[in-house]
Design a protein around this nucleic acid. Structure first.
Lengths: 353, 353
DNA sequence: GTTAGCACTCTCTTTATCCAAGTGCTAAAA
DNA sequence: TTTTAGCACTTGGATAAAGAGAGTGCTAAC
């Protein structure tokens, strides 16, 4: 057990993982010795493979079936072995093209990013929009709907932060509601959702006149901590059929069951550690929420101190990590470019920052 | 070819379809004679089956594999043979329970209906929200977003009809925008989307001051003819694995590819003939948009002259039509109940109707 | 018009055999 | 001590043969 990882072992492990990622076929000692390590014989490689298996990095389905990397091997591969990749001209063009049209709102941006990632990586893409908690409320308005109902809409510069129907007194006319909308709107403008509870008590005691409406608004604002379903996007579910592990119907079933639920998706990609930019979760590890046999690679983007959401892919453990991570990095750069140019404009208009 | 459909043939065809729907196993002459037609022998049944095959209602995969209904048989079955079913107490309770909470907005209602249908039928449910074209605009507002952008929101009593970002002159301040919002809002209140183009010219010539904003608004309104992605809902995609035809990976692939695209879904369930309440489309028929080997059963609901959307299921051709149709009918009734009680309230508030 | 009987067809399962691939181990070589 | 050659052993996959089971079509009798 207490065995050192010689350089040659690392090299062989890298070869095995690379090879398996590319071909999906268990790799044999012979093929390694012939294609990659021409200076030693297959028997030598065989000994090393046996040792690597002993160390827990490799497994074999049956005695004569070549070796396959274990989850542990993938982790090690990503940490130490993997080589940086480069995108082809074509892919770079595709990214540039996709983000050329800098249409304003976040909803489109999320969908767009997700689509780009899915297309370039050939995996199913998952995306979760930016948490709105720290965005500054640009406007707040209540639109009359009759029946003692109103629609509360909250927007920032680039998105509908939230909207929901609230109750208002039946006696309140449209004009009165519009008026209240103004007053309350002015009050929250420039604040963030997370600041709402700070002013809650103060505000409630002050506005006797609109007290009931006010408390409805505050309740709504406070309920906005969880991401909306609309902010969770899934693109290219059908892409899994391009990967041989999903010729087994059971795997497809598992996969589809998980991704059918937005809640589950949010769980899988939601609890990012903010420190880490790119995050790899491999099934059957400590990440209990990631389905067995699946890997999830996500990147959490932020630019100018502003969170831009988490994007990534979900697919088989035997995933082309190099490609995926390269794509995520390049998409991140593109995204940064857009937002920084936009932020410049915005500084002029944003009252408090 | 010119052969009459005797009563006995009809009866036998009905047995075959019923049996095949229940068991997914090709049905044999022997099983029919034993279980359903005890007064004749299997040989007699065999003759009838041969005749039905001649007529195009039955096919067999191989010479000794029993018979399977053809799409034509399903159509005939639905038209003439099918028996009305009843829901169990449990199912009825479930529906009642699900619609007890009459929370106002349409978005939730659509999701709820779709979920109920999927749960009760055990098929994947597709739903498309009501076309908003004929709903009356209850409020229209433009919320300032800075940067020469504004969010245009249009609501009826129960839903966000539409929202989108529009350009406004950079010179326009927040207050001015709010003011314009009022003026323009008043103008369109009570109108329907389809009425917008009627007043277009008149309005544009009149409002010189806000002309630019006005034309942006009108452009936006006119672009709202297609359903929004959010109004197309899919629930229970994983349910297909409960049906044996989807043990074949190719079928799953087809299915998933189709339902991954909201556009395709809209196409499939979109072009309903308004006259018909319940609509059955069977793959490989004239309905080119329905995937091969799939059936789509939809119901378009309306109450009080108001369209409530189209709901239904998509699944294998060998579908439990009786159950599905019964569920759709009962959901329809429940829906009608909700809306009629709501409509009563609304009449008082709606200015022109 | 109906039925019994039987040959025929087709699929599915089981069994046996062979083949190729890859390993583990041992003994010799470096 | 490390590397290597050689070989026995294991396993899955492919192929073929054989038998069972199910269901039909047809013919001849009822």
């Amino acid at each position: 057990m207490a065995m050192k990882m010689s350089d040659r072992k690392k090299k062989i492990l890298q070869i095995v993982v690379d090879e398996y990622i590319n071909t999906a076929v268990p790799v044999s000692s012979k093929s390694i010795a012939e294609k990659h390590l021409t200076d030693v014989s297959s028997a030598t490689v065989r000994n090393e493979l046996a040792a690597l298996e002993e160390l827990g990095y490799l497994t074999q389905f049956h005695t004569s079936g070549g070796r396959v990397p274990s989850p542990q091997a993938y982790r090690f591969y990503i940490e130490e072995l993997m080589q940086k990749g480069n995108l082809s001209e074509k892919d770079l063009d595709y990214i540039e093209q996709a983000f050329r049209d800098k249409t304003g709102d976040v909803e489109h941006l999320i969908k767009n990013v997700s689509k780009v990632i899915s297309e370039l990586t050939d995996y199913t893409s998952v995306a979760i929009g930016p948490r709105g908690d720290e965005e500054h409320i640009r406007s707040l308005a209540m639109l009359p709907c009759g029946e003692g109902k109103a629609l509360l809409v909250i927007v920032t510069g680039t998105r509908i932060l939230r909207d929901s129907f609230i109750d208002v007194p039946e006696t309140m006319g449209d004009d009165e509601l519009t008026n209240a909308s103004h007053v309350i709107g002015k009050l929250f403008e420039g604040k963030t959702l997370s600041q709402v509870k700070d002013v809650e008590e103060e505000v409630l005691s002050e506005f006797g006149q609109y007290r009931q409406v006010m408390s409805e608004v505050i309740e709504a604002l406070k309920s906005y901590t969880r991401p909306r379903d609309e902010d969770i996007v899934l693109t290219g579910a059908e892409k899994i059929f391009n990967h041989p592990e999903y010729e087994d119907i059971e795997n497809v079933k598992n996969f589809l069951t998980v991704i059918s639920s937005k809640d589950k998706i949010a769980e899988i990609i939601g609890d990012e550690d903010d420190e880490i930019q790119i995050n790899v979760k491999i099934g059957s590890s400590g990440d209990a929420d990631v389905p067995e046999d699946c890997s999830v690679v996500t990147a959490t983007y932020s630019a100018g101190g502003k969170n831009l959401g988490t994007y990534g892919v979900i697919g088989p453990i035997r995933m082309d990590y190099t490609k995926v991570i390269t794509v995520l990095e390049n998409v991140g750069k593109a995204l940064e470019g857009i937002v920084s140019s936009k932020n410049k404009d915005k500084k002029d208009n944003n009252q408090d920052e």
